[in-house]
Design a protein around this nucleic acid. Sequence first.
DNA 1: GTCGAGAATTGACGAGTCGTCAAATATCGA
DNA 2: TCGATATTTGACGACTCGTCAATTCTCGAC
Lengths: 244, 244
Amino acid sequence: MASATASRRLRERLARERLILDTARRMLAELGYLGLNMDRIAEAIEYSKGTVYQHFSSKEDLIAALCADTAAARAEMFRKAASYDGTTRERLMAIGIADAIFIRRHPDHFAVESILDLSSVIDKITDERRDRWVAIKTAKMDVLTRIVQDAVDAGDLVLPEGVPLCAPLYGMWAQAVGHSRISSMAPMPHFAGVDMNAVLWTNYNRMLDGYGWKPLTSDWDYQASAERISTTVFGEPSPAGSLT
Amino acid sequence: MASATASRRLRERLARERLILDTARRMLAELGYLGLNMDRIAEAIEYSKGTVYQHFSSKEDLIAALCADTAAARAEMFRKAASYDGTTRERLMAIGIADAIFIRRHPDHFAVESILDLSSVIDKITDERRDRWVAIKTAKMDVLTRIVQDAVDAGDLVLPEGVPLCAPLYGMWAQAVGHSRISSMAPMPHFAGVDMNAVLWTNYNRMLDGYGWKPLTSDWDYQASAERISTTVFGEPSPAGSLT
DNA sequence: GTCGAGAATTGACGAGTCGTCAAATATCGA
DNA sequence: TCGATATTTGACGACTCGTCAATTCTCGAC
């Protein structure tokens, strides 16, 4: 039965790929991009370097795989969050909460992703992996765009003439990206003692209030929503801090 | 007269440093971080590699110098913008405009800065240069915090209990950072045909409206403000696009 | 004009890493 | 047991970084 052998082979291959990924993730967190070393990885997993290159075409390709690994988990959390049954603004909030919980679960994901943002790095990964990477991002945007569309259809949100559907999303996305970058920089004295995570949430709400996305903060207890979403969808306490 | 010789020496040294920086910037834009090569720089400027290392202690140190180079120009533009004589919200807007014009003038600055954000890279630069880098960032935050303080003092802005002064700044900063990062990624189909720069400005205004920072968008022509600030302070057309 | 001490410049070199590939080894059905 | 096929190996070539002993240059003193 040839297929039994083939299936075992595949299983072993996947297990080894997992081993490489886990080892690389640990090393990357510890030593950074420049410290990550293919020879050391090979040594750590007790295979030769050639075998590592059977799985990943280059060091950068391996990093991209690390990224895709957590990004898949992130996309799944997005999907789950989007199915939350509430107002359109609560559903958008659910995505934000999904992301915040994701960050709590995978604190070093964005440090890895920021390596890939260097154009000279992304140029070195295989085409399939790059395509998959773009597909994941696109799927997330689809989920989000759908929520805005629903809000407009339901009359919760009225976008002024000339403002595209993606505008409020873009505001949240840019803030989330900026937040994760700033968090990974050297701490600024101006932010000492301030819960920047709570500030991020405050700013989300201020912006959506500015768009007039109903129900407004003044008419709804979003603190309670955050707790409800967190526990219902993810079974965890809210990551949003105290909203204002 | 020994000082004449010394002064000429210094001048020559500075000129060569300029030459190295300009060459490196061009190469970095063209070939990316991984493509940038100390031997090639030395060859291009027609000096030896050892001489390049007289100026910069490592490849990463050179990149940090590139960054500091434009960052100094940016800080100067911030300072100029902050002195604009208008409402507190216009003054904040002036900073945003300064930054947008800066991006227009130095389109590849953030690509360079993002290299430095990799922790394993910043670890390799000299202490003085790192300190200078942090000092520039801090100075910019000082300018901004001052504007928010003035707004609160003037009664233009009332921050709810528990919201720190830096909150609205953080929202703008995070969006600016996120925007520059997203812009340098592979283009998303959801944004095709949309002027993301105009969207960024829309979002700034929505958020500040959400904070109730007076005068609100509904009571003031910020389009006109943008044009006025751009021409008055920088003698250039507004980079904000059409605001909504 | 010449000299020589000290400053500036050079580029060969050691160390380290990436990615390859011919050779060695392991697997598995006949 | 055997041989064809799949898998693994690690020595190797190519490349880059950063160093430093050797070389060249500079400039004031005589």
